[in-house]
Nucleic acid binder design. Structure first.
Length: 728
DNA sequence: GAGTTTGAAACT
DNA sequence: CAGTTTCAAACTC
């Protein structure tokens, strides 16, 4: 028996963790011993000598990994690729050339992998945190905070550490890599495997990536991230050479990883050299966001991405879109992680918040001037809004400017514009100073976006009811608001939160985006400019407006009516309940359309359920002449759109080029946490996928086709992103 | 800007 | 769940 134990020990030593490598040396001493030989003979596993150790090991690890982590992993790998950029940025690493970048990736992975044990811990942590956030339905705040904390931590590490530890690790890794070219090869294979797997899953598809919904995202992200880490680990294992790395090293690497992701993300997002703002902005954002947005708004972050993406796509900002795209596709995992970390909270968010977060993503300006203390988030538009560039500057300047309102409006306008891709209004508006709330409002609306800055005129509700647009949007009232006895201010945060909670208890979806994007929205938009893709969550109940006025929430949101609507005499130009309307819209609207109905239902459910955070997007489209444009206030949806869009990034990316027309009308709010959870549900998955499905499936104009596509979606299981766009 | 209309939100 | 009231936005003049 004792022998057995010893043998086991020996085996354990051999098999084990990286730490074992250190032990390896001692083992080598015994290798020649008869006992050792005996043990070896007994054990299926062959003792590896220090030198060989790595590769065989790596092989093994690789073999095991794929099955489990493939899907996520793919994203990860890609993400890692994105990391390259970061690497390049590192001056310290001259070694990393373009080729080096690849190595760097692996190296990163290795470094991280090296600390498998520690990694696992770390790996799980992110996922856990995320999961928790996503899971926790009601505790948005807590979630946000937690996320923020995480994020901040990451940031902290990132910036400072990014260059430092990361590079160091890399250099080590690189060295290792060089030593083990064979490994690289294996790594490549691994990639291919992963890619294949991803393809199977549809993860990779460029377009697809995004389909992912918020909820899914949250989960996915973590998962993917984990996977990536795992992969890295695998590589690391192969590379075991670096036993030297310890847990700390892993952590660093992990952090670096995250950081890199962030950076890469930022870079991508920003299209332009964002400069410092990104980093600082990111952290600030989270903070600012928090304040500005009622705590509950966690959604913002994701939305931001989505919005950015959506906006970008819609806007014409192909680049911006691209920036986003990468995120979707590859960076998904990382990004999500980042996002979540950054600010992104799952938030469901307040529209404004979400928008701000999305847009800004990086710049949040606090305007304390405002009594409200609302922080304006200025998006660096850059990424998302090319045209915005000037706008941004203006905005920034504005922030300093005495009149906060103007600044806000501009910002909002900018955002709207960007999102809408409509004309760039910001500047003009800047010059304009609005006095009366209504005027302001109109202006804003005209600008295309009021969403960013909602203004209310409440007199009796104290801005603590859904009657109040600001409150409903999850935003604090600001000066421009003409409300009386307003409690929707940071000062009354407790009250606001309590009220919000109360309302949510009554209706968990109360703050969820009203307009949800249908699965197909994007494609439809692209193809036809239809608003159809998005739908109103609950549907309208119009009796006299014929759904042709903004009284109609559907119309206001730029979406067609759906079967959920109880409207009478619906003439919604975006799509009728009957579905008769525009073909485009028909898709979604088709109240009648069996298929359409299905979609709607599914969509609604998903949204409701998941509402938020992840929600992919609900893109609404502005494509059609939104009523908003004319009048102004674009439906909240716009804002929402941005935010919600996140999941869709992938799509957006795809769309970028062509999407200008389309604006995302997507859900305003992010979906509440609850929704997120729901998102996880197959349905949600479907939603997210829908975009993909579009791509996958051939375009269908006819109902039947739709139906088929929809069916497909349903059939698509839970993987949120995996499913191909139904619409296509 | 005042007044009306409208439909969502809230209440019963 | 349905009916009613309240509310504030949307709209009209």
């Amino acid at each position: 028996m004792g022998d057995d134990k010893d043998q086991d020990k020996e085996k354990a030593i051999v098999m084990d963790t990286p730490e074992r490598t250190q032990i390896a040396n001692p083992l080598s001493k015994f290798e020649d011993s008869p006992v050792f030989n005996y043990i070896n003979s007994l054990s299926p596993i062959k003792p590896v000598k220090s030198v060989h150790f790595t590769q065989p090991f790596s092989n093994i690890s690789f073999a095991s990994l794929p099955s489990v982590f493939t899907s996520p992993h793919v994203s990860t790998l890609k993400d890692s690729k994105f990391l390259r950029r970061h690497q390049f940025s590192d001056p310290s690493k001259p070694e990393l050339t373009s080729e080096g970048s690849k190595k760097a990736e692996t190296s990163e992975g290795n470094s991280t992998a090296a600390l498998n044990t520690s990694k696992q811990h770390t790996d799980f942590n992110p996922s856990n945190s995320i999961t928790e956030t996503s899971t926790v339905p009601l505790n948005r705040c807590s979630n946000l905070e937690s996320r923020k904390l995480n994020y901040e931590a990451v940031n902290l590490v990132g910036p400072s550490a990014s260059s430092g530890p990361f590079i160091n690790n890399r250099s080590e890794i690189d060295g290792i890599n060089q030593l083990h070219h064979g490994k690289e090869v294996s790594a490549v294979d691994w990639d291919s495997l992963i890619s294949d797997a991803s393809e199977l899953l549809n993860f990779d598809s460029p377009s697809d990536t995004v389909a992912y919904k918020g909820p899914g995202q949250s989960t996915l992200d973590p998962t993917s991230f984990n996977t990536s880490l795992m992969n890295v680990k695998a590589q690391a294992n192969s590379d075991n050479d670096n036993p030297s790395e310890n847990n700390e090293g892993l952590k660093d690497t992990v952090e670096n990883h995250l950081m890199v992701a962030d950076t890469s993300l930022n870079d991508f997002e920003v299209g332009e050299p964002v400069e410092d703002t990104d980093n600082e902005g990111g952290s600030n954002l989270s903070r600012g966001m928090r304040r500005r947005c009622l705590v509950f708004e966690m959604m913002g972050s994701r939305r931001k991405h989505l919005e950015d993406v959506s906006n970008g796509s819609n806007v014409n900002l192909s680049e911006s879109n691209q920036t986003v795209l990468p995120i979707n596709n590859n960076s998904l995992s990382l990004r999500t992680a980042n996002d979540s970390s950054k600010c992104k909270l799952p938030g469901i968010g307040l529209h404004l918040n979400s928008i701000a977060s999305n847009l800004v993503d990086h710049k949040v300006v606090k305007h304390e001037n405002l009594g409200s203390s609302r922080q304006l988030i200025i998006t660096p538009s850059s990424a998302a809004y090319p045209s915005m560039g000037s706008g941004q500057e203006l905005i920034t300047k504005l922030s300093d400017a005495p009149s906060f309102e103007n600044g806000i409006e501009h910002v909002q306008n900018v955002a709207d514009d960007a999102s809408k891709a409509l004309g760039f209004v910001g500047n003009d508006e800047l010059s304009q100073s609005q006095t009366s709330p209504r005027k302001k409002r109109r202006r804003v609306e005209n600008a295309g976006e009021a969403e960013a800055c909602k203004r209310c005129n409440c007199k009796k509700s104290k801005c603590l009811k859904l009657y109040c647009e600001c409150f409903a949007a999850g935003v604090y009232c600001v000066e421009p608001c003409a409300c009386h006895e307003c409690f929707n201010k940071p000062i009354h945060e407790d009250t606001v939160l309590a009220t919000r909670k109360q309302i949510e208890s009554r209706n968990p979806l109360a703050f969820a985006p009203k307009v949800i994007k249908t699965s197909d929205s994007i494609q439809e938009d692209e193809s036809s400019n239809t608003p159809a893709s998005a739908r109103h969550k609950r549907g309208c109940n119009c009796k006299k407006s014929g759904c042709l006025k903004k009284y109609c929430e559907c119309y206001q949101g730029g979406v067609g009516c759906s079967i959920n609507c109880r409207c009478e005499g619906c003439k919604n130009t975006f799509g009728r309940k009957d579905g008769s309307q525009m073909d485009l819209e028909v898709n979604e609207c088709e109240g009648n359309g069996n298929d359409g109905s299905l979609d709607m239902v599914l969509y609604n459910e998903a949204e409701q359920v998941s509402a938020t955070p992840a929600t992919p997007s609900r893109f609404g489209r502005q494509s059609i002449p939104l009523p908003n444009s004319s009048k102004g206030k674009p439906p909240r949806s716009f804002l929402t759109i941005g935010s919600s869009s996140v999941p869709r990034f992938g799509k957006l990316n795809h769309f970028k080029g062509g999407m200008n027309k389309q604006l995302q009308t997507v859900g305003e709010n992010e979906i509440p946490d609850i929704l997120e959870e729901n998102n996880r549900s197959p349905i949600s998955g479907v939603k997210s996928c829908s975009p993909n499905s579009k791509r996958v499936s051939p375009p269908h104009s006819s109902m039947g086709q739709r139906s088929s596509r929809k069916l497909i979606l349903q059939s698509i299981p839970s993987f949120p992103c995996l499913t191909p766009n139904p619409k296509q």
